[in-house]
Structure formats: structure tokens, C-alpha cells
Computed example of a mutant assay.
Amino acid sequence: MLDLSSRVAIVTGAGTGIGEAIATALSRRGCAVLVNDYGTDVAGRGGEEQSRADAAATRIRKTGGTAVACAVPVGTQESAAAIIDAAMSAFGRVDILVNNAGFGDSGSLEEVNEDRWRFGLDVHLNGPRALMHLVWPHMREAGFGRIVNVASSVSFGRAGYSNFASAKAGLIGLSRAAGLEGTGAGICVNAILPTADTRATRSGLEAAGELRIRDWFIEHFPPHQVGEAVAYLCSDQCAISGDAFIVGGGRFARMGYAVAPGFFDPQISAEAVAENFGQVSDFTDADIVFDNHGEQNSYMRFIPRP
């Protein structure tokens, strides 16, 4: 078993589901955990309920682990400082940060008003960035840090989720950039795109009357599978950084990007593009980019050279 007995972790949104599974997986390997959860419902409403974080921390302690509860919300620089201060007060250090807190933020581009748009970005992108920004000096000074950002496959695009998709896609970009910045400082940053049985998943399937699919999710996509994958990404044995992984149902797969060879014409015109659009969209012999380390995999790779 991987040894995390000298480590301290902050896991946001750790009161239930994926977050609790991650906190539990870390604890089983000796890691002390700050269980952060504000107690909102699946739509991000309500909150200020210490009971959910307390209950999850109690479950960890009952199995012999070390955990304290924190019911501070995620989304601002001030709340990020309060969360980190709570971990420092309880344990004196922070080695691991898992940005998992979130909610099912649905709504079309036309439906989502400015307040809802900003709230979604605060919880799913600005809040994780604030925590990363404030915890970074502690990790750099210690020469060790592991950050895992919980993104979503919705970042590829899904109708009715413009806000959520935008924020989670931004979180992947943030993870890849920060992963490069951590090189040489002992800080590894990665993102995961999980699939698991959660409150939000069940709520959505039940609302749609998809009870058979709900039961299939419960059987084949338990959250602990995601927790185990994240425990590896938080360990000393993990040296990869700046990448994203598909996780769930027992699968753990590195995610890459594909760039088609495309159509090239120095005298390019709209008409030429229209005539050759099949070539533009042909992914035969595409370049598969698995990471962004080095000039070979940078954006310069796809710029024609003289």
C-alpha cells in the first residue's frame, strides 16, 4: 500500500460522493485529511451545514484515520485562506490539495443569468485557483506538493451546461499550466474527468425517469474507484504533472488531444477552406498530444516551419 502517513491533505466537497471517497482513500494510506464541505444541495443551494463535513470526518476517524471537518464554502480568496488556515491550525502543513467541490450547474446559455454564471465560475474555477494560489508557497517551501483538480467530461461540451462546461474546461487548462510551473519545485498538478455514482448523477437520472441506468451506475461506478485513482496521483510515486485522466468504472486512462493534419495553403481563402473542408476534418494520421512537456508538444508543433 502506498504510504501517505507523513502527508496532510485538503479535500473540498468531501462530505459525500467522490470527495468523501477521495478523503477515505487518502486516509487509508495514513494521510491526515481536512474534510471540507459547505453542505449545499446538488444545485449549489443552501449550505452552512457543519453536519455533513462532521459526519464524513467522523466516519474516517472511526476507521482509524485522522480527519477534521471544515464547513467553509469554496469560491473566493477569503474562503480559500480560511480553508488553508484551518488545515495549518489542525496539522501544521498542507501537502495535498484536491479541488472537488462543485454542483450540478445546468442551464442553457440563454437561461443562465449573470449572477448564476459568476457563481458557477467561482465555485468550479475561481475557488480552486484561489486555493492553489495560496497553498503553492507552502508546497514550494516543502519541496513537495500534489494537486488534483476534479474536472468533467462535460468540458467537451454538452447542451444545457454552458456554465459548467466553461468552468471545467478552464480547470483543465489551469491544471496543465500549473503542472508545468511546478516542474523543479516538486509540485505535481493533474486533472481528472470522473464518472461515478453521486448525488448529482442519481438526481439527474431519477428526474429523467432513467431508474435502470441509475441502478447500473450504482453497481458499476462506485465513487471509491475514483478515490483510489486520486490516491495514486497524490502519492510520492506519481511524478507526472500537467495532464488529465479519465477515471471511473475501474478505468484509469490518460487523456490526450488530437490535431488533424489539416489543409495547408499559404494563399488560403474562405473558398479554398470550403473546397477542402473534408481534409480539414480528417483525423487519419492525426498528431496525438499526450502531454505539453517540451517544444515537441507545444503549440509551436502545429505551426508550419520555413
Rank of each mutant, 00 (worst) to 15 (best):
I268Y: 05
R251V: 10
V226P: 01
A229V: 12
I218F: 10
T201S: 09
T195D: 09
G170A: 07
G256R: 10
M255G: 04
G186Q: 05
Y257A: 06
Y232L: 08
Y161S: 14
S241C: 06
A260V: 08
A260R: 14
E219C: 04
A270W: 14
A191C: 05
A270K: 13
A196H: 01
W216N: 12
G262F: 00
E219R: 12
V189N: 02
E206G: 08
L180T: 07
W216A: 15
F164C: 12
A159T: 13
E228F: 05
V189G: 02
A208K: 09
A185Q: 15
I240V: 15
Q267N: 15
Y257S: 07
L193H: 06
I213D: 13
H220F: 07
P194F: 00
G248M: 04
S269K: 05
Y161A: 15
G250K: 03
A178T: 09
L180N: 13
T198N: 04
I172V: 11
G250N: 00
A244L: 03
G248H: 01
E228L: 05
G262I: 00
T198P: 10
L233D: 08
G227M: 01
G262P: 06
A260G: 08
L174P: 03
E219P: 05
P223E: 00
A167G: 04
D215I: 03
N163Y: 03
R158M: 14
G227A: 04
C238G: 11
G179A: 08
R199S: 11
P266W: 01
S269P: 09
G182E: 09
A229D: 14
D215L: 01
P222A: 12
A178P: 05
S235A: 09
A207P: 01
A200D: 09
K168E: 03
